[in-house]
């Protein structure tokens, strides 16, 4: 009924892995590397054969071919971006409720920072907080804490 071992994730994209800071699909990454290599090298080779002989010196010709090869890299990347979708689940954030915000403030307090009092703030900062809609959040939090202290 309750399976403790996580199921091997072979969904539509195959095995996922975190590589160089983000999640990719292993089979798709293999194909993407192949596409990137083939496209960039093909463009470089074609430029080396066609554009390079037209330049005034061989060094400039080779550099121009390299520039073409770099454009080839970006082209290869663009093809891969069309073929392979990002493995990210983007959630559009819902308006945060007061309870959640309180948890954030608790977290700040735990991490060693004082919350402080809105009374002590310079007027400009208090005004900014009102515009953002956080003034009352901080004020309520303060009053809650004060009440809890009296009660406890």
């Amino acid at each position: 009924m309750n399976n403790p071992t996580p199921a091997p994730a072979s969904g539509p994209d195959g095995q996922l892995a975190e590589i160089w800071g983000d999640v990719v699909s292993r089979p798709q990454l293999g194909k993407a590397i192949l596409i990137g290599a083939v496209v960039s090298l093909a463009v470089y080779a074609v430029a080396l054969a066609t554009i390079a002989p037209l330049a005034s010196t061989p060094a400039i010709g080779k550099a121009l071919a390299m520039l073409a090869g770099i454009i080839g890299c970006i082209l290869g990347g663009a093809i891969c971006a069309r073929l392979f979708q990002p493995k990210r689940r983007v959630v559009e954030q819902i308006a945060p409720g007061a309870i959640w915000q309180t948890e954030v403030l608790d977290q700040i307090a735990i991490e060693g920072g004082a919350i402080g009092s809105v009374e002590d703030l310079p007027p400009a900062v208090a005004q900014e907080m009102r515009e953002v809609g956080l003034y009352s959040v901080f004020q309520d939090y303060e009053q809650d804490r004060a009440r809890n202290r009296e009660a406890g």
Binding site: A32, I33, Y44, A81
Partner: peptide
């Protein structure tokens, strides 16, 4: 960026870059 540019595409671009500059 989050919805359209896959990490596979970024890695593919860098692999192409290594190959072209190295061969050059």
């Amino acid at each position: 960026v989050a919805k359209r540019i896959s990490h596979e595409a970024i890695i593919a671009t860098f692999v192409g870059l290594i190959l072209v500059i190295g061969l050059w």
